[in-house]
């Protein structure tokens, strides 16, 4: 008798499972057909870093202070300051980002005190060669200009700048 109930219960559990998969079969697929369709990403989505420029003058906001370079745990950023021009403004002469090293942690963007560096939300980061993964100042500025709609970084909590500025001593 026990065996019979066990068999019936077992058979019933299989029928229940079949019922569940059948109900699921009636639902539409949930697939997002990337790359034909694209996910909608929140504005704070990180992606790769890029340089922002002033929307009015079009000039880069970067002052070549080097905090990002010091904050980066992976030494992905290499920046050289330009010699001071007649307007006494500090500018970077070169700014290279090695995406082959970058782990998209966003510490550089948090550390930037001038809102000149941001995580620009770009997520297609593959390249055919390693050289493809190294981005120059101009390329980063171009990516930053494409990021216009989110040019204003989200408000940062108090104390953020102070802490994250403290990179390698």
């Amino acid at each position: 008798m026990e065996t019979v109930t066990a068999i019936l219960k077992g058979g019933w559990s299989i029928l229940v499972g079949l019922g569940i998969t059948f109900r699921r079969m009636l639902r539409p697929p949930v697939t997002l057909r990337y790359p034909e369709e694209r996910p909608e990403l929140p504005p704070i989505y990180r992606g790769m870093p890029a340089l922002l420029s002033d929307p009015e003058t079009g000039e880069l906001r970067c002052t070549a202070c080097g905090v990002c370079q010091r904050t980066c745990p992976l030494e992905a950023i290499h920046m050289e300051p330009a010699p001071l021009g007649p307007d006494k403004k500090k500018r970077p002469a070169s700014f290279t980002l090695d995406m082959g090293r970058c782990m998209v942690c966003g510490l550089c963007a948090e550390a930037c005190a001038f809102n000149a560096l941001t995580m620009a939300g770009r997520y297609e980061l593959a390249g055919y060669t390693r050289q493809d993964l190294i981005f120059s100042l101009e390329e980063l500025a171009e990516i930053g200009r494409g990021y216009r709609e989110n040019n204003q970084a989200p408000p940062r909590p108090a104390g953020a700048r102070a802490q994250d500025g403290g990179g390698v001593q």
Partner: peptide, 8 residues
């Protein structure tokens, strides 16, 4: 976020 010194 608590106030944290610049260099920890």
């Amino acid at each position: 976020r608590a106030k944290v010194p610049a260099a920890i």
